[in-house]
Amino acid sequence: MAGILVVAEHNGGVLKKNAQELMTVARSLAAGAPLEAVVLGPGASKAAAELGAWGASKIHVAEAGMEAYAPLRWVRAVAAAAQTLKPSTLLMSSGSLSRDITGRLSARLGARLASDCVALKPSGSGYQIVRPILAGRVRVTAEAAGDAPLIATLRPNAFSIEKPASPAAGAIETLNVEQTPEDLRVIVTEFSRAGGKRPDLSEAGIVVTGGRALGSADNFKIIYDLADAIGAAPGASRAAVDAGYAPHAMQVGQTGKTVNPVLYIACGISGAIQHLAGMRTSKYIVAINKDPNAPILKIADYAIIGDLFQVVPALTEEFKKMLKA
C-alpha cells in the first residue's frame, strides 16, 4: 500500500483535535508505509512541529502566500503535497474545509471520495468504509478498491485518539505554492469569526442545545450558563433559530451542523427527524423535556421529564458542585 497523506487542520498554529484523530487513523492504515501530513495557512509551521510526535515522517508546510483562505490555492497546495508521495489515501476531517475542497481535489487527483466516514479500514487491496447516508437514517458499508486513490473525510469525534509510543522523523518541508491568476477568481474578502472562547460546535466533546421551548433569546442564558459550566458548545434547534432565539451558526440538524459529541444535552427539543439527523451519533444523549412522549426520548440514554426552566439551572448547579469536589 502506498503512502497516506493527512491534511492536518489547526487553529492559528495549535493542532486541532480532529487532526489528532486523523493521525491516529492514518497510522493504523499506513502499517509501515510512508505517512505524511500537509499543514496550511498562518501558524502552519508551529502546528507542523507537533506532527512528528503523531507519527508523520514528513510534513509539507505552506505558510507564505497562504495568509487568507482561498479555495483554489488550498486545492493546489494539497495537490502539490500529494505529488511526490502519490498517496493511496488522503485523509481530511469532515467539515467546512473538506466540504469546500474535496470535490475539486477528487477531480484533480482522479480520486474516489468518501465523505463523513465513521469507520475506515483496509480490505483486500483497498478500503472498507462505513458512512451515514440519508441524514443518518441509513448506514452504508462500501468498498473502495482499485488503483485510484481514495479521499476520505472522517466525522469528528468518531475515531479515538492515541499517540504513538515513539515519534516519527517529522521532517518539515516547505511547500512553495505559487500565486497564479487562477487564485484571483475566488477571493475571500471578509472572514468574521463568531463566538470566540467557546468550543467549536462541530468538534465539541459536549454540546448543550435549546429548543423553541426556551421562548426567547434572553431565556437562552440558561443554556449558555450550563454550557459554560461544563466547557460545552451551546447549540439550538432549527425552530429556536427560526424564532430568532439563537444565531444560525448554533443550529444543529439537517440544515445546520452535524455534531458528534460524547455528551449531548437537549433542552426543550422534541426531536424532529431533521434535528436527529444532526446529532443522533452522539455517544450519550440526555433529553430534558416536559413531554414524556417527545420523539427525542426514543434515542435518549437519560431523560428528565420536567420544566426546563427549573431543571437546567439545577443541573448547572449540580455540575458546578461536582466539578468543585
Binding site: 441509513v138 462500501a142 451519533t281 428528565i304 443541573l315
Partner: peptide, 30 residues
Amino acid sequence: ALSIQQYAPPPQKTPGKVITTVPAEAAAEL
C-alpha cells in the same frame, strides 16, 4: 466510485433511563 456492500439501519439504542423526580433531585441523579 464506491461499491456498496451493505445497507443497515443506524445502530439501535436500548431505551434510556427516565427520571421524573423534582428538578433538584433529578439534576443530582443525572
